[in-house]
Amino acid sequence: MNTTTQKKIPRKDFFKYIINISTSAFLILIVYPIVSFLKPPKQREVEVSDVKISNLDDFAIGDSKIVRFGNKPIIVIRKEKEQFIALSAACTHLDCTVQYKKDESIIWCACHNGKYDLTGRNISGPPPRPLDKFVATLKNNELIITKASS
């Protein structure tokens, strides 16, 4: 009794329907692996909690060094004998690596002339945010750099 009330789909439409679905499925089957292939696999981020600079005798006062903190570069400046500054070295504008300009006492990005003061504050040029801060502690003639607790 049910069958009489059900609408019949014409055979032609039915085939069209099947063909459309299978074509789409087929296309997805081709496109999906390609798109996934192009997406670079997630590499395990190295969780680093600190980096050490041990050779402090080579680190002259007024000099700067760039060290790797996990995947990120960090700029370390030796201001005085016992005073170190550690900041992220990735410019907040477009990610270029910054450098310390001793004569002007600023941190400078060559890419678009962005400037930061020695606390990491963006003072001129395009950078929208200050540089991230890190903590540098001196212990037994070794410099230990850790993330600033926010």
Binding site: I66, R68, P73, A89, C91, T97, Q99, C109, A110, C111
Partner: peptide, 10 residues
């Protein structure tokens, strides 16, 4: 060198 600062004149 990813660890070198960007040179002037980029």
């Amino acid at each position: 060198n990813p660890l070198a600062p960007a040179p002037a004149g980029i």
